[in-house]
C-alpha cells in the first residue's frame, strides 16, 4: 500500500476542513495529520483582492515532483496539495497542504518542506489589488533562503 499523493490545481474554492477529513479517511496507517491552509490577507482592509496566475502543465509537474521528494524523504502515509488560481477575495483559502504519517515529526517536517518549496518552486504568481491599484507580489530573499535548510550537504 503506497502513500496517497493527491495534487489538485484549480480555480474553484475548496473547504479545507472537509478536505482534511476526506484525506484522513483515505490514508492508511497514519497516526498524525498536519494541515496548513494559506489565506488571502486583507492587509488591514487595504487589499481588495488577489489574482493568481500559473503555468498550466508545469504547475502540476512541479508540485508532483515536490510531493514525491517529500514522500521519499520522510515516512509518510500521504500528501495532499490543493492550490487555487484565478481571482480570490480577502479571507479566501488560496491553498492547503496536508501530510499524514505514522508519527508527527515526519508529518510536520514534510508539511514545512512542501510549503517552503511550493512558495518558490511552483509556478504561481500573485497579483494584489487595492485602493492604490494592482501590483505583482515580489518574491522575498527569505523564501529562497528557506530552501537552504532542506539541502543536504
Amino acid at each position: 500500500m503506497g502513500a496517497v499523493l493527491d495534487v489538485r490545481v484549480q480555480a474553484a474554492p475548496f473547504d479545507p476542513g472537509a478536505e482534511a477529513n476526506a484525506f484522513a479517511a483515505a490514508v492508511q496507517g497514519a497516526g498524525a495529520l498536519v494541515t496548513f491552509t494559506g489565506l488571502v490577507r486583507d492587509e488591514g482592509g487595504q487589499l481588495t483582492g488577489m489574482e493568481i496566475e500559473h503555468y498550466p502543465g508545469m504547475t502540476e509537474r512541479a508540485i508532483a515532483a515536490i510531493a514525491g521528494q517529500a514522500r521519499d524523504r520522510w515516512r509518510l502515509a500521504g500528501v495532499l496539495v490543493i492550490h487555487r488560481f484565478g481571482p480570490l477575495a480577502p479571507g479566501a483559502a488560496i491553498m492547503m497542504v496536508a501530510t499524514a504519517a505514522p508519527h508527527r515529526a515526519d508529518a510536520f517536517a514534510a508539511a514545512e518542506f512542501l510549503m517552503d518549496y511550493l512558495k518558490s518552486r511552483a509556478p504561481f504568481w500573485k497579483k494584489e489589488s487595492g485602493a492604490a491599484g494592482a501590483a505583482w507580489v515580489e518574491a522575498k530573499a527569505a523564501d529562497e533562503a528557506a530552501l537552504d535548510r532542506w539541502r543536504r550537504g
Binding site: 503555468y55 492550490h83 518558490s120 511552483a122 509556478p123 504561481f124 500573485k126 507580489v137
Partner: peptide, 29 residues
C-alpha cells in the same frame, strides 16, 4: 526560465527544446 516545463539556467542549450518560458521568481503558497 523553464525549458519544457523544467527550471533551467540562462546558459542552458536549446537543442531539442520545444517550449521556453520566461517569468519572474515564483510566489506560490
Amino acid at each position: 526560465v523553464a525549458l519544457d516545463q523544467d527550471l533551467a539556467d540562462f546558459d542552458a542549450p536549446l537543442a531539442g527544446v520545444r517550449e521556453v518560458a520566461f517569468f519572474p521568481p515564483m510566489t506560490g503558497g
